[in-house]
Design a protein around this nucleic acid. Sequence first.
DNA 1: TCACGAAATGTAAACGTTTACATTTGAGGA
DNA 2: TCCTCAAATGTAAACGTTTACATTTCGTGA
Lengths: 353, 353
Amino acid sequence: MRATIKDVAKKAGVSIATVSRVFNNSPLVQEKTKAIVQEAARSFSYVPNPSARSLSTRRTETLGVLLPDLHGEFFSEVIRGMDQTARKHRYHLLISSSHNNKSEIAAALGVMRGRVDGLIIMSPNIDAHTLNTNLPSSLPLVLLNCSIEDNSFDTFNIDNFNGAREAVLHLIGHGHRRIAVIKGTEGNIDARERLRGYLSALESAGISRAPELEFEGMFTEISGYQAVEPILQLRPRPSAIFASNDSMAIGAMSALETFGVAVPDDLALAGFDDTPIARFVNPALTTVHVDISNLGVQAVERLLTSVKEEHPRGRTQIVLPTRLVARESCGCKMRPANDVRNPQEETASLSAE
Amino acid sequence: MRATIKDVAKKAGVSIATVSRVFNNSPLVQEKTKAIVQEAARSFSYVPNPSARSLSTRRTETLGVLLPDLHGEFFSEVIRGMDQTARKHRYHLLISSSHNNKSEIAAALGVMRGRVDGLIIMSPNIDAHTLNTNLPSSLPLVLLNCSIEDNSFDTFNIDNFNGAREAVLHLIGHGHRRIAVIKGTEGNIDARERLRGYLSALESAGISRAPELEFEGMFTEISGYQAVEPILQLRPRPSAIFASNDSMAIGAMSALETFGVAVPDDLALAGFDDTPIARFVNPALTTVHVDISNLGVQAVERLLTSVKEEHPRGRTQIVLPTRLVARESCGCKMRPANDVRNPQEETASLSAE
DNA sequence: TCACGAAATGTAAACGTTTACATTTGAGGA
DNA sequence: TCCTCAAATGTAAACGTTTACATTTCGTGA
């Protein structure tokens, strides 16, 4: 049977308030008394009951994380960054995933109420109305990679636009004028911004937009693989492909090999994300680096600032920079220094938009 | 200001006990009364306070998950299976990761006490003593891929041994007699069992163990890459490599390409895990399929059975089967049917050891 | 020794829900 | 109409902690 604060107080010969003060590090307790209480608590392996504490303090010391789906390295990396940061601050992470439409999201928001001190939402389909309807206005909130452009929320986004733009400009720098794009999942903000970056690069180079060069994709290897055959049937044939993420680029690379098209000599290729595998395919993949784990870290830090602050301050919209990593698939002969043996994980620097 | 059960009771003109009965689906409430209460609750967007409920019921409706580290698709898949299953039963997942030594694990166990109704532990370094010391004996527990062989716990493990054995026997079936192995992370149970499967296959084929054919690895692409050069320097040179997971196999494949060694003609290769990328490398990777998501599903189902049961029953130790997927890297000319276009996700069938 | 002020400790109520047992209500039968 | 019994509802205490305010203790100075 589990000991309570009353058992500890009785054994230590003090009141329950004193035991509570000891556990909450009140300066109003004598060291001698403190030692007696701690010894008594140790003898019971006493741990304060989190539910009772929450009822009194109105705090759970838990952060909610709402994810669209848990697929692949991107998500395991962002959760890892979140978890490590939360733990550093003695907070817990309550995870809920596979929320892809508004009613699921609304239901998930309802179920998390009262269980979390703050919430991180990473869902491309969320809108401000759903949030305002389903959450108390006092609940701290951070949006990650959401399409809400409302300045009344704290948001973190990857600089998809400039990353994609840079990659496509790089392909253009290799002489490519007819560049196909394998788009991301319909309705996804990352997909939208990466397409926009692609189009912007074309425009900068004075290349007209050509809708027949734009192909549907779903951020999976298989969708990248399947996009290649129709691309190869175009006349005149594109000389390069920008795939909106690495998984699709790798699928496309596999299909090009199947169809006997040499990369990059016959057709150049670039991806997005710089997942660990990108260095190890042949040819090594040119891609856009994203510091994923740091995205999770920053989101939790920002949320905890909101949770702990007493006076609401202004909201920030932060865009994490991306960086082109030019390897072989675009046609470069030199890979970045130490690209295989000691991949460097750069610390992303924040820039407020 | 958030409404409480008292506000709802007052508005509905009933006692707080009646409101509680409505929310807990007691059969002792008239339908007419129930409707009045629900309407009153709706008018306040009332949600019962989880902390208060937990204090009364001594239940949190939350499951703890303790992970060694969050890396890659394996972990995102197992968490996905867990989360979906927990949600189906209206349970929440409290995640904690990066626990790699005993003191970290003990600390994490302490912090989770009182916050979870049951616990899933997925840590290769856990031992029965740490568990018995830090957890109440009444807390339901499931161990995933842990090295504890004590029958007093519920455990789930992947059949690493037979999977690895099958893969290596398959390489032997291709005529290979000198097969190098890139091992997994030191002290990891998966690594140990896969090595044991490798050795068992050699023995079955009447091939003597050769320690110079065993190379250190860390389940990462880079460690697989780096293992290849010393392998190629052996005389006589091995004609095949069994890498203990797909990531290392892909790293090794990249290195073999770099050194101008043709796969599978000059040197055959096999991996373990059947991650989605395995189909898309060239040559397509021969590997061992693991239904990862289902591992998470089964662990949560088993844990919830323990949480909900009133009378403790016997513990089970379950091994999830693996399946060889022979693609091209071993030397096979035929790939499994529908391997690229419609990968089939088989439902693993359980077998109790 | 007494008075005063600060530090230390204790008492009682609060937090929001659940539920055992008490009380009331309603239906059916004599 | 009265009685009985089952269903429905209410009352009060419990769950374990926190903390405002009350009370006691201790140290210092006159």
